[in-house]
């Protein structure tokens, strides 16, 4: 579904991503784990078209994405739930969800709203509330719900557990598991390696812009180097 081939991404002179390749197949949950500053967000932002790689190529659903602007990539079926949630704080919950369906025909909005509200009953209770007044966990649910509003073929989540209390982290990962069971393809970026690897089919470990290890979630959980660096010994 997604094929990233040897991309190099720069911020001015800073070489942030150094020859990274990976792929995500339909129906899989794939995770990219790595410490703060490893380049995880940079990779997602490049895949979704907010940033562009200097060399290398990205293929989505068999078509090369090179240079396609971000808003066009959304139409092709990719949803990116960015780091820090980035919901529209001054808009209502429902307006945020409507924005998530911006590229979709009007007729799909209501059924999609129903689906998202089923998934996140809390959002339904608060549909008329201004998003800025939601708690951190609710905001993350809104960000994910907004991503799902376009019925994406690929859902990319950038650190959905960031800044949440452990119980909410559990909830978020339960939701990811449920989405996986329903067949949603997910690319999950996390610092919380333990949780991420436990829901993922496969994972890649990123260090200072390079992929240093790859394997199934279980393999990486047992991998000694990964254990030492990311799982607290």
């Amino acid at each position: 579904m997604l094929k990233v081939n040897d991309i190099n991404v720069y911020y001015g002179a800073i070489h942030a991503i150094k020859g990274v390749s990976f792929e995500v197949n339909a129906g899989e949950v794939v995770t990219l784990i790595g410490a703060n500053g490893a380049g995880k967000s940079t990779i997602l932002n490049t895949v979704c078209g907010l940033l562009h790689s200097r060399t290398g190529s990205i293929e989505f659903l068999g078509k090369p994405l090179g240079g396609t602007p971000a808003h066009k990539i959304v139409e092709q079926g990719m949803a990116h739930v960015p780091e820090g949630r980035r919901i529209f704080l001054q808009m209502t919950v429902e307006e945020n969800l409507e924005m998530g369906a911006y590229t979709q025909p009007r007729s799909t909005i209501d059924p999609n709203l129903e689906r998202v509200y089923d998934q996140f009953p809390r959002l339904k209770e608060r549909r008329k509330q201004i998003a800025g007044t939601l708690s951190g966990g609710e905001q993350q649910m809104l960000a994910m719900g907004r991503g799902l509003m376009s019925s994406p073929k690929l859902l990319m989540l950038d650190e959905p557990s960031m800044g949440l209390a452990p119980i909410l982290v559990e909830q978020i990962f339960d939701i990811i598991r449920r989405l996986h069971e329903k067949g949603t393809t997910i690319l999950l970026v996390e610092q919380n390696a333990q949780m991420a690897l436990s829901v993922a089919d496969r994972g890649y470990v990123l260090e200072t812009g390079k992929i240093v290890a790859t394997g199934t979630g279980q393999e990486l959980l047992r991998n000694a180097a990964v254990k030492k660096a990311y799982l607290g010994g």
Binding site: G49, H71, V74, R86, M99, T103, R146
Partner: peptide, 22 residues
């Protein structure tokens, strides 16, 4: 829809792009 997209852009252009807004 267009007016709401405008408000979305005024809050966060990057996030607006991720919604598919030009």
């Amino acid at each position: 829809k267009m007016g709401k997209a405008m408000r979305a852009c005024s809050e966060d252009k990057g996030a607006a792009q991720l919604m598919g807004i030009d």
